[in-house]
Amino acid sequence: MLVQFLVCMTATISFALLFAAPKSELLFCGLTGAIGWIVYLACMNLGTGTAIANLTATFALAVISRTIAAIRKNPVTLYLISGIFPLVPGAGIYYMSYYFIMNEMSECSQYGMETIKVAGAIVLGIVFGSSLPQAWFNALGKAGKKRT
């Protein structure tokens, strides 16, 4: 689990660098991505299936991104975009096209539906995360400011 956490953090930081995130925020970008991935893994271990796992993970990701954004006074986009990459269904796209080419239609449609379900779960996760009132996060931001 720890290895997964560190590897995912490296992956997220690498991608954040590709999108030219400010150097001071790289660590936080990595943290959001890694936490999202760990939540995903934890849900998968509990046997919830990919859709629910993705939903929970993106929800956690959105909430954490907004919290850090409020504390660090930066746009949410910064953390959300770097953090979403581990959850985006890249593997789904690959297997779908692979089985399509191999003419195994049942596998292909299974992976296709899976990909669409995951994309839908990500949508709902971000929507739920975004709909929490901004006032909560502002309060968190103020509390963080007092501490520093």
Binding site: F15, L18, F19, T77, L80, I81, I84, F85, V88, P89, G90, A91, I93, Y94, A119, I122, V123, I126, V127, S130
Partner: peptide
């Protein structure tokens, strides 16, 4: 190996921005 390497192309940003 292929799945790892196509990740830079996968439309994560477009999807996120679209949802928001």
């Amino acid at each position: 190996a292929i799945i790892g390497a196509i990740m830079p192309l996968v439309p994560g940003i477009a999807l996120t921005t679209s949802i928001r």
